[in-house]
Each structure stands twice: as structure tokens, then as C-alpha cells.
């Protein structure tokens, strides 16, 4: 007998228990200020947040934040066939943000490739202010029916506290994260 049928056999041999799924969870708090909450969460998770009226303003602010580094967009990475290991600052688009935890949904529809947001040294994500939801429940509502081949919630720069619980930013992934709110 295969292990698969052994496992299913063991489960089927158990007495049937009727326990219903509790249904979808509704968050208590309907926040008034999702953008304000989102910014607050970004500061907690160690991300830099930039309010920008337009692309021009964003570019100016980015050259202040990353003065000596070359920045590439997702499109440039793909069309120039860049080696991602060599990319200092990568600029990508996020689909939407989550106010309660500063997370941004990224999916491989919008990424040059899957490893890009992890392997670059610094990451910049553009998110529209109109695209912030309050909690993860609303986030999954929004993703309903949108099944990316790969997607993630990304919240803050890569970090670790594995040495004596001292927080160090830049473990394996991006050393900094800048969110441009447009």
C-alpha cells in the first residue's frame, strides 16, 4: 500500500466529526484614515515613506535618499537583461497596501522576476494612496479570484534579530525599503 493511501486510510478510519467552518471574519475596527494608519505601520516596520505628487517629485526625493546609487525600474531590468545581483536600487509597482501592518501586495505579474525584490540591495515600491485597505481581511477580499502564480505581502526591509535579539536591518533581502505614495 502506498503511503498516500495509508495516510488517507488512517484519516478515514476516524470517527466522523461534524464541525462547521466559522465563516469569514469581519474586522471590528473600520478605520477612518487608512493612509495615516498605513504610514504609521510603515514607520513601525522600518520602511521609509515618501509622499509624492508626481513621478518627478518622487525621482527628486529618491536621489536624496539614494544619492550615489543607480536606480533601475522593473522594465529596465527586463529589457536590458540586467544581472539583479548588481542592481543597487530597484523600483517596482505594488498592487495595494495594508494599513494595519504596512504590507504591500506584490505579484509576479508586476515583477521582473520572482527574486528581484529580495536580491536587490535597496527596494522602492510605488503604491497609490487610493489603493490602501484597512486589514488583511480586506486584502484577501481584494485578492479574491486573483490567483497569482507567485505573490507576497512585503512589509519593511529584510531584518533579523537572531543575535541577542538586537534588530539588524538587511539580513538577506533588501537593506532598505522606500514606499512612494502617489
Amino acid at each position: 500500500m502506498s503511503s498516500r493511501s495509508e495516510i488517507f486510510g488512517a484519516i478515514q478510519a476516524l470517527e466522523k466529526r461534524e464541525i462547521d467552518h466559522p465563516g469569514d471574519f469581519k474586522s471590528y475596527k473600520a478605520t477612518q484614515d487608512v493612509v495615516g494608519d498605513f504610514k504609521n505601520s510603515l514607520s513601525i516596520v522600518g520602511a521609509i515613506c515618501v509622499d509624492a505628487e508626481n513621478k518627478q517629485e518622487a525621482a527628486t526625493r529618491l536621489s536624496e535618499i539614494y544619492p550615489d546609487l543607480l536606480r533601475y525600474t522593473s522594465h529596465e531590468v527586463v529589457s536590458n537583461g540586467l544581472d539583479l545581483e548588481a542592481v543597487d536600487v530597484l523600483e517596482i509597482d505594488g498592487m495595494f497596501g495594508v494599513a494595519e501592518n504596512g504590507a504591500i501586495w506584490l505579484s509576479d505579474q508586476f515583477l521582473p522576476n520572482r527574486v528581484a525584490p529580495f536580491i536587490c540591495q535597496h527596494l522602492v515600491i510605488y503604491v497609490a494612496k487610493s489603493e490602501i485597505v484597512a486589514t488583511l481581511h480586506e486584502a484577501y477580499e481584494r485578492l479574491d479570484g486573483n490567483y497569482a502564480d507567485f505573490g507576497l505581502f512585503l512589509s519593511g526591509p529584510s531584518k533579523t534579530a537572531d543575535i541577542e535579539q538586537s534588530l539588524v536591518i538587511g539580513a538577506h533581502g533588501a537593506r532598505s525599503l522606500t514606499i512612494i505614495l502617489v
Binding site: 505601520s41 513601525i44 516596520v45 495594508v98 494595519e100 501592518n101 504596512g102 504590507a103 529580495f118 488583511l136 497569482a148 507567485f150 505573490g151 507576497l152 505581502f153 512585503l154 512589509s155 519593511g156 526591509p157 529584510s158 531584518k159 533581502g173
Partner: peptide, 8 residues
């Protein structure tokens, strides 16, 4: 609030 990366 959430882990840095929650990958699906």
C-alpha cells in the same frame, strides 16, 4: 505586525 515576507 506581520513578518517581512509572507510569500504565496
Amino acid at each position: 505586525l506581520i513578518t517581512t515576507y509572507s510569500s504565496h
